[in-house]
Structures are given as structure tokens and as C-alpha cells.
Design a protein around this nucleic acid. Structure first.
Lengths: 160, 160
DNA sequence: TAAATTAATGATACATTATAACATCACACA
DNA sequence: TGTGTGATGTTATAATGTATCATTAATTTA
């Protein structure tokens, strides 16, 4: 959840990103960003549909949601977490993601997410690995699918 | 695709892994391994269902396929590629995966997969990042979702 | 050996996620 | 003023994943 002023700042930055990409921040797209700013956890396209309709008292269809999310992802205003098929807003909207890919830690049990800044040397080493397999880069983001400490200890408890 | 002798060796090793885990390599499970050995690319549960039924001239349901795959994954005989929801047989069936997580490079365009051996120091660095975000480990495998060189160059061609 | 317990599988239905296809709208611009 | 293009609306359907309950097979235990 973001304060109204920050939301406005964000929207204006987003508008700039859109225009720089030769597109526009349409009403639907802006609303989707506001919805994404309003929620704290990653959400599926269907969950976002519900939230969008709840917040804006309308009846957007998932088809449109997918389209808007695809667009916002293409200009890097949102991240799509590939491992769990959910979306979150990019909290590096000031361009940082373009320089180095973010690392997302994803808990496979409770789906808690942490975004982590990665040591450039690690990126470099991974890029090297990627190159050795005939891939040009590590990709736009790195996702590690694991267990958060909380779930890890629950898991151990259940075993004993 | 694997030669018949290698397949037999593999199955015997797999049987051992099952029994070590306190379970059995049932007929269905063995057949699924044979199907996985027969195909070269990662496949979805539904594709595997079709292949299974084709190869064995039967009518297994996806529900059963999911169950068998879940089991085989739990004892680390198959990998589930989280990014694309597909399955491949573990080609480290001699226990290597338990020591260090494998890295899968996945092409987001053609879905070509390469498995890469990761420098232990990189794992260590990533584990450190994970820990700093209150995650206990990097997880059982690392997936990088990117573009292979071939698709990358096609992509560039299409832009110009 | 018979009954009871448990692991594995079969079968059906359903929930969730994603895309195809076509119609419409709105704006830019020749 | 028409015409092309990008964005959205609408409906249908494909693809993927899970819940539930019934059945079978093997193992244990009385």
C-alpha cells in the first residue's frame, strides 16, 4: 500500500515510461497500476480482476487484465513471477531494473516474496554460466523457489 | 532417448532410490520413468499423459500422471521446471543433485533447455543472498528464464 | 487364515489459468 | 471525411491443476 502522494508520483513516472515506449498510459492501464500499488502481495490475473472490479466498481474481464498486464510487463512496470504466475508492481520504477536484474525469493509453501539486490559479481558469474550454455543473458529477473525460514521450521516440526 | 541397456540400469537405480525412501517403484512409476527417458524435451503433465498412453497403449488419466510425477519429484528422480510447468528426468540420478542444485537455462521463446553445472562459489553467494532475505536456501534447483542465442538473434532480426 | 490397515491407483467432477477470435471504439492524421 | 491503428469489449474455449470418493493391492496384526 502506498500513500496517495507517492501513488501520484508513481503514476506520473509510469506515464513517462509509457510515452518513452511510444504508447500511452490509458485509463485501464493507470487503474491497473493503482490496483497493483494497493495490494501488497503478488496476485494472479484472476485475483487482480477481482480487486480491480472491487476497487473501481466495474466489470473488467480477465482477458483485458491479461492484456494490460502483458503491456505493463513489456515496459517493465510490473514483474511477472514466472514460477507462480503472479504479478507485482516493479518497485524499481526509477529504472534500476534495466541495469541489473532483480532477484525474487519465493516461498514455495506460503508464497511470501522478498526482492533482493544481487551482487553484480554474482550476476556476472551467472551470465558466464548462461553464455556457456549458449544463452545470451540470465534474463530480466532471477527467481529462486525455496522455503522461507518460517515455513522451513514448520516443515521440520511436522516431520518430528 | 536412451539405449535399452542404459534404461535398464537407470530403472534399477531408480528402484533403489524408491526403496531407500521407503516406497516402491510400482509399475506405473517405472513406466513413467521409461516414458520420460524416451522423450528428449521437457513435457507437461498432459503431454506426458498422451505419450504414456501412446507408448503403452493404455488410458492413464492426468490425475494419475500428476500423482506419479509428484512422487518421482519428491524422491528427486525427476525435476519439475517451475517456470514452465514441465517435467524432465533427472540426469544426475547418481545422487549429484543432492549435493548441489542444478541450474536450468530455459529459453522463453523456444523452450530449449540446458542443464548447467554451477560453480559452488556462485551457489554460496546466492545462498548468502537468500539468507539475507530470511530464506534458508536457494532451493533444490535454479531456473533462469531467458533467450537462447538462436532465438535472441531471430528476435533482433524481427526488430530491424 | 481372516480381518484390519495402509499405500497406490482409478474415475469423475470441478476449479483455475490462459488464449483465440471477432466486434467495437477512439483517436491520429492524411 | 474517411481510413488506418492501437486499445478495449465480449464470448467462447483451450489448457492446466486439484478435490473427492471409490477401488484395488499389499502388509500387518489379531
Amino acid at each position: 500500500m502506498m500513500s496517495p502522494e507517492c501513488t501520484n508520483d508513481f503514476i506520473e513516472i509510469a506515464r513517462g515510461v509509457c510515452e518513452k515506449a511510444g504508447s500511452k498510459l490509458t485509463e485501464t492501464r493507470q487503474h491497473m497500476l493503482e490496483v497493483l500499488l494497493d495490494v501488497s502481495t503478488p496476485m494472479s490475473a484472476y485475483e487482480l480482476t477481482d480487486h480491480y472490479n472491487m476497487l473501481l466498481a466495474c466489470d473488467i474481464k480477465t482477458m483485458s487484465v491479461y492484456r494490460v498486464l502483458d503491456f505493463l510487463e513489456s515496459i517493465r512496470l510490473v514483474h511477472r513471477l514466472q514460477s507462480i504466475n503472479k504479478y507485482i508492481i516493479c518497485n524499481h520504477t526509477f529504472g534500476a531494473c534495466e541495469e541489473h536484474p532483480p532477484l525474487f525469493m519465493i516461498c514455495k509453501s506460503c508464497q511470501h516474496i522478498e526482492e533482493v539486490e544481487v551482487d553484480p559479481e554474482v550476476i556476472q558469474a551467472l551470465t558466464h554460466h548462461a553464455n556457456s550454455a549458449d544463452f545470451s543473458s540470465v534474463g530480466s529477473q532471477i527467481e529462486l523457489y525455496s522455503l522461507c525460514i518460517k515455513c522451513q521450521s514448520t516443515f521440520h516440526k511436522n516431520l518430528s
